[in-house]
Design a protein around this nucleic acid. Sequence first.
DNA 1: TGTGTATTATTGATTACGCAAGCAAGTCTA
DNA 2: TAGACTTGCTTGCGTAATCAATAATACACA
Lengths: 147, 147
Amino acid sequence: MRAWTRLLRAHAAATRLLNAELQAEHGLSISDYEALYLLSRAEDRRLKRVDLSRRLALTPSGVTRLLEGLEATGLVERTACPSDLRVVYAQLTDEGAAKLEAASCGHVGSVRELFEEHFDAGEIERLAELLGRFPGVAGADDSCPAG
Amino acid sequence: MRAWTRLLRAHAAATRLLNAELQAEHGLSISDYEALYLLSRAEDRRLKRVDLSRRLALTPSGVTRLLEGLEATGLVERTACPSDLRVVYAQLTDEGAAKLEAASCGHVGSVRELFEEHFDAGEIERLAELLGRFPGVAGADDSCPAG
DNA sequence: TGTGTATTATTGATTACGCAAGCAAGTCTA
DNA sequence: TAGACTTGCTTGCGTAATCAATAATACACA
């Protein structure tokens, strides 16, 4: 039970901090950043929305809304899939890639800082391993490191 | 970085699961439950809103909105502080205490189940310890166990 | 070929929360 | 006792997410 409430509190503290920072410096939310990141690593820099939804742990409508914002600012664009007319790819634009590039250094730095302030390398690894055991967490896991 | 995204995913997975369950069975959100729990353990079953806000990791406005709901359903009531007219206590009602009682068994059981499915006792302890190092997490910590 | 079911995505309504601003009550300083 | 500030709480407004309902496409099978 203590572990559970601490998971809640740790999440609240960390997201507030990092979200504010990312928002202030680059006008992106954490979800924005993660979506751009996933797209940048994907083949042809595009993903089906349904895949994004799984990887981001958002509902399909959440993804639609998230991408609305990114499309409006030109960081992502909609492209069709010739073999399946239902799917609409989210395609990272050059501008989006540049934005990610610009934001990533600072954001990754903030995350590092937050964690390394309280943990050593082994502990971070251990924490990641433990958290990975929650259902569905470890699966979608190329969403991890960065430079 | 992997630890960070896993914290996000683990939180999303766990809160969705537990929130849905608590909502379906007792019409409470996780925050509702935690507020009731904190009040039940507090002296005279009441707390200042500012203290609730610290313990729940919500902003003051978040607490106001949360308590609006609980006041509307009669689980909590507003009482004044004679020595400081600014403060408005959140006071657990008998009905609120009964509701908490009714919900707690099932909820605590669900949390146990979720964790014990994936971790043994030592790992849970270790996880709690690690999460407790995030800023502000370990401080407000009578919010833990339950029976 | 036509029909039923599953999948992909979007939309409308609602909810939960944060931020910024404000009011009212308390506490200092002089 | 007046003015400056701090603290506790609420309110207005915006955002991000959810759910439920819908539409459009794909596919499986009689």
